[in-house]
Simulated scan of single mutants.
Amino acid sequence: MIEIDGIDRQILRLLVQDASQPASAIGRKLGLSQPAAWRRVNRLQEAGVIARKRLVLDKEALGFGVTVFLGVKLAARGRVGVDDFERAVTAIREVQLVEHVLGLFDYRLRVVARDLADFERVLRRRILTLPGVGNVEANVLLSEERLPGPL
C-alpha cells in the first residue's frame, strides 16, 4: 500500500475536479515544479490509487432528462444465475451503472431515459423481461447536489 501525504490528497482533489489538467497546472496550484507534480501523479497511477480517468458527459445536453435508480430483487424460486442477469442487464444501453448490493434488493441500477415515457418503455420492454427479475422499486432522481470524490 502506498503512503499518501497531504500534497498527494490535494493532487487527487484537483484531478477529481478536472482529470485533464497537465502536471504544470497542478504544480502551479500547489507550488510544485512540473516534474515534481508529474512524478507524484505518475506514482499515484502506478500504485493504482488513480485507477482510470474518465469523461463525464452532460446527460441533459444529450437529451436524457430523467435518471432513475432501480432496486431489483431477483426471483427466489427457479433462481437464475447471477451471471445471466448481469450479462443481460449490462447489455441495456440505458443502464449506466449496475451495483450488486446487500440488503432489501440484490441490485441497484442507474437508468437514464429521455423522459418518463421513455423510461417506462425501457422498464417494461427491457428490464422487467430480464432473466430472474422479481421485485423492482424505482426512485426518480430529482437533483444531484454533490458529486462524490475519493477523499
Rank of each mutant, 00 (worst) to 15 (best):
V98H: 12
T67D: 13
W38V: 00
L130G: 06
V122L: 12
V56L: 14
G71M: 11
Y107F: 15
R77W: 14
N42W: 05
R126T: 01
V89Q: 08
L57T: 08
E86L: 15
L142K: 07
L57H: 11
A51P: 04
W38N: 11
D118Q: 08
W38A: 12
G71T: 12
G63P: 04
N135G: 10
I50S: 09
D118T: 07
I127N: 10
F85A: 09
V111I: 11
D118W: 02
I127K: 07
V72T: 10
V95C: 06
E99W: 13
A76S: 03
R108F: 05
K73E: 14
V82A: 12
V122T: 12
D83K: 13
R39T: 02
E120I: 03
A47G: 09
V56D: 00
L70A: 05
E46G: 00
S143D: 13
L97E: 11
L70G: 08
P131C: 00
V66P: 00
G103A: 02
L97A: 13
R43C: 00
A138S: 15
F64G: 09
L128E: 07
K73Y: 04
V122I: 15
Q96D: 14
E120Y: 13
L57N: 06
A91C: 04
A117G: 04
D84I: 03
E86W: 00
E94G: 13
L116M: 15
D106T: 01
E94I: 01
R79M: 12
R40N: 07
L55H: 09
R114F: 04
G78R: 05
N135V: 09
L44R: 11
R125F: 02
A51M: 05
F119I: 02
Y107D: 04
V98M: 10
V136H: 06
R52Q: 01
A76K: 09
A37Q: 11
R124G: 03
P131R: 00
Y107E: 04
V101Q: 07
I92Q: 05
V136Y: 05
R79F: 07
V56N: 02
R125K: 07
G103V: 05
G134M: 05
L141R: 09
V72G: 14
V72W: 08
G48P: 13
R87V: 07
Y107G: 05
R40G: 07
V98A: 09
R121C: 03
A51K: 10
R93T: 09
F85W: 07
R87D: 10
V133T: 05
G71W: 00
L123Q: 05
Q45F: 10
A61I: 02
D106A: 06
V80Q: 07
L116H: 05
L142W: 06
D118P: 06
A75N: 01
A51Y: 01
L116S: 08
R39P: 01
V133F: 02
V49E: 10
L142Q: 11
V111M: 01
V72Q: 11
G48F: 04
V68A: 06
L102I: 10
N42E: 12
R54C: 04
A61V: 03
F119S: 01
G65A: 15
D118A: 14
V72N: 13
